[in-house]
Amino acid sequence: MVVANIQVSETPLVIYALRRADDALILGHRLSEWCGHAPMLEEDMALSNIALDLIGQARELYTFAAKVEGRDNDEDKLAYLRDVRQYRNLLLVEQPNGDFAQTLVRQFFYSAFADLYWRAMMNSRDATLAAIAAKSEKESAYHLRHASEWIIRLGDGTEESHRRAQAAIDNLWAFTGEMFAVDDGERALIHRGIAVDPASLRGRWLATLSEVTREATLALPQNDWMQQGGRSGRHSEHLGHLLSELQSMQRTFPGLIW
């Protein structure tokens, strides 16, 4: 056996970068599943653009993580040779595409957060993270705009679209709490001015959600029980299947150049 899972030296900064990189890759991968199957050609174009932005963000963050780690890992080893338990993305982004409403609500919840998050991270004391954030913020701002316009149209469209959009919101709501949680390692990075404290963003995130859903005639759920686990590698069953597809070439033909 040439290559099994790689070992990653999981220092707080490496884990921090991997969490953001995994979010971007997994969500980008999910969106890329739409390519060729969207409700209209214009939306095929839009979803692919968003997927490409996210894959680009993931690549920069993996490269940063590998550099911080200082072993011989690189973007592809980090993406293709870690198993489910080593992935650190939010449960939200690994949820299946479902129908168009589910995909857009997932995107809306994430982008509303990511836009604020990257904007705050532009002030990171780490110059590389600040630069990645500056580029990603512009991308996320557009993703949020795109998703918001769709949420409004689905919510205030037909009876069926309203029902589907509301069902997607109710279904995905419990995965949003994880975005605002931090562990001790991340807490230390926040104190050092390297990482962003997501809890400080929750009020504005909720305000964006409220504003858009109000215009869309949709309701945000009242329950505040939240599902967690992605950040420490305890995922839903969906991620394993996603990875078995994503990693199939590297797992079948270990150690080759493509």
Partner: peptide
């Protein structure tokens, strides 16, 4: 077919 409801909503 699966996109029909989205186009109708828009």
């Amino acid at each position: 077919e699966e996109g029909a409801w989205v186009r109708e909503a828009a």
